[in-house]
Nucleic acid binder design. Structure first.
Lengths: 156, 156
DNA sequence: ATTTTTTCCGAATTTTATTCGGAAATATCA
DNA sequence: TGATATTTCCGAATAAAATTCGGAAAAAAT
């Protein structure tokens, strides 16, 4: 299936990125098209996996997740074991992101916990159980100034 | 207004985090409640800013955003100017996240661009224009193994 | 130039959202 | 504790939206 996106698709993505719960009817009004035509496009964007999913952004503080940290993780062995290490990291629910990075550190991981104590727990209980982790370097976030999931949608 | 969340609220958050476009009717069926009652709760969660927004996760590759990088940015002056620097960074659309971090580096920034060349452009054109940036250290992501926005919703 | 495919429309139908009065359950407090 | 206030929920009515589908129009392919 073709993955090329025209201007209308980009408009849809822009509007839905800003508000995933916009009604199809409103979307159609914005685009000055029939609801049925817009719906067809949205379904196609979902099929093509251009749209990955619709998520709700929850205020972490409201559910007692006050601490955000980034952890650089160095793997002790070669490239082959990295994939395995990555999978193990990805399974930990508090870990939101796992990136395989260039350079001497193997992974950069984003993690959210209630507080410093529970981060410590996580590192002791979950991280230390993963084989081949040589070292970790943790960076604590004091304040998040910007946090958007939005991508920059090209104009055309 | 009270911000305490009961079990039903947490269930709603869990379901909506997984799929922001779930219909209120389906939500009500899952919770075995009347749609009107569920709607009332959702509205309240929005009012209380427990729910921040509903977003659509777009496959970055589909819109030619193939490069992901993290940049550590050191500010040359004291704490007071940091706020200003943060604001300037936050205005750059390609920068998705700006975190004020503990330690000698002042900020950790997450940035998405089309490719290495456009990241270079960004650094030359946008970053270098910001006063008081002493140094930057860029980490390129080779592969993203996990990328979730979901928080861990407590059971009770 | 013809055929095929895609995109769109509009109308019909099903489903959902929204509103609201009032009952039931909870919480507050004197 | 007992009375009062507040919150939560339901159910029914109505307004709005989603979904389906046949077929016209536009675009692309041959």
């Amino acid at each position: 299936m073709d993955i090329s996106l025209d201007h209308t698709d980009l408009q849809i993505l822009e509007l839905m990125q800003t508000n995933a719960r916009i009604s199809n009817a409103d979307l159609a009004r914005e685009l000055e098209m029939a609801p049925s035509a817009v719906l067809e496009r949205v379904k196609k964007l979902e099929q093509k996996k251009v749209i990955r999913r619709y998520t709700t952004s929850i205020n972490p503080a409201a559910i007692q997740q006050k601490l955000l940290a980034f952890i650089f993780i160095r793997s002790s062995e070669g490239f082959s074991c990295c994939t395995n290490t990555a999978q193990l990291l990805a399974q930990i629910p508090e870990i939101q992101e796992v990136h395989h990075i260039a350079g001497e550190d193997c992974f950069l991981v984003k993690v959210r916990t209630a507080d410093a104590a529970s981060l410590m727990d996580l590192m002791r209980n979950s991280l230390q159980k993963i084989p081949n982790i040589a070292s970790t370097k943790t960076t604590i976030v004091l304040e998040t100034v910007k946090e958007q999931q939005e991508l920059v949608i090209p104009k055309k």
